[in-house]
Amino acid sequence: MHRKIEVCLTPALLDLYTIEDSIVVVIDVLRATSSMVYGLDNGALAIIPVAQVEDCLLYKDMGHLLAAERNGEVVEGYDFGNSPFSYTKEKVAGKTVVLTTTNGTKALHMARTRAHQVVIGSFLNLEFLCKWLKQQDKDVLLLCAGWKDQFNLEDTLFAGAVVSELRSSFSHFDDSSVAAEDLYILAKKDLRNYMMKSSHSHRLAALNIEEDVKFCLQLNICQTIPVLQGDELVALDFN
């Protein structure tokens, strides 16, 4: 099987890729996709990603938790934002979360219009995601959410980690995949230190949420792969 793996470095480039028969992995490791993985791993029934802050209000009277983040901060009047520490068992187990973020939910909505399937990746579920991708008979596109349609370091590093894990199972790699993997190999011995170079890391530091960054860089603490079914992200059923 000649499967290909590609890395789209920003959603602004997504139209250049043919993804109708591909699994698209949406990546926004600081912090949206990390929180999605962690929330579903902690028993959330579903996470509904919406594009705009106002869209959350459509769900106001349904008993759901409403989460909205813009520019790294919780939008005033909402239950929480996209800090993984808001997605603990105590807060989300048995509940549905409606979430909008600056970059991650936008990338997700762009991917869903054409992709064969959309799943969510983070360092928290790296091993389980890669194991599952190896078993699928599909090409893979790793979609980096970036920062406001620009390239960012942290999502590219994660894409490189996936490429590194999948290299033996795929035969075609684009140049973005090669670059992402090289970057990850350079950084993997001390991800946090390397990430200090990233602009978003500096944004989050200014908001005093260094603990969020450290949390999102943990490897393989979750065994859940969020998958988009209709309008909802739910835990992938491995059976």
Rank of each mutant, 00 (worst) to 15 (best):
Y87I: 00
N103E: 04
Y59Q: 02
N152A: 13
L57Y: 09
L142A: 05
T101H: 10
I120A: 06
T100M: 04
K89G: 00
Q117T: 08
A159W: 07
E73G: 12
V163C: 10
G77K: 06
A115Q: 06
T102F: 06
T88L: 02
E154L: 03
A115T: 07
L157M: 14
T156H: 14
G121Y: 11
Y78L: 12
V162E: 04
E90D: 13
G72L: 04
V74L: 12
Y59K: 03
N152S: 15
L153D: 01
G104T: 02
G146K: 11
E165H: 14
Y78I: 02
N71S: 12
L99K: 06
N103V: 02
M110R: 14
D79A: 10
G63W: 06
E69F: 01
Q117L: 05
L157Q: 12
E90Y: 05
R70S: 12
F85N: 12
Y59M: 00
K148L: 13
D149F: 15
N71V: 00
Q150K: 15
D149N: 15
A111P: 09
K106N: 09
R114L: 09
Y78V: 02
L126F: 05
K134S: 12
C144M: 06
R70E: 09
M62H: 14
G94R: 13
D79P: 10
K148R: 15
N82A: 12
N71F: 08
S83I: 03
L57I: 03
K131N: 13
T156Q: 14
P84N: 10
Y87K: 09
A161L: 02
A107V: 03
G63R: 08
V163S: 06
N125W: 10
D61H: 15
L126P: 06
L65E: 02
A68E: 04
A67I: 00
Q117H: 09
V74R: 15
V118L: 14
N82Y: 10
E69A: 00
D61Q: 15
R167V: 02
G94T: 08
G160T: 02
C144D: 06
K95I: 01
S164T: 06
E154N: 06
G72V: 05
G94W: 11
N103Y: 02
D79E: 10
A145M: 01
G63V: 07
P84K: 14
Y78T: 08
D137P: 14
T100Q: 05
W132M: 03
A115D: 05
H64G: 01
Y59G: 00
V140G: 04
V92W: 11
W132E: 09
K131H: 14
L143A: 02
S164L: 00
V140P: 05
Q117M: 08
L57H: 10
T105P: 08
K148H: 14
L143D: 04
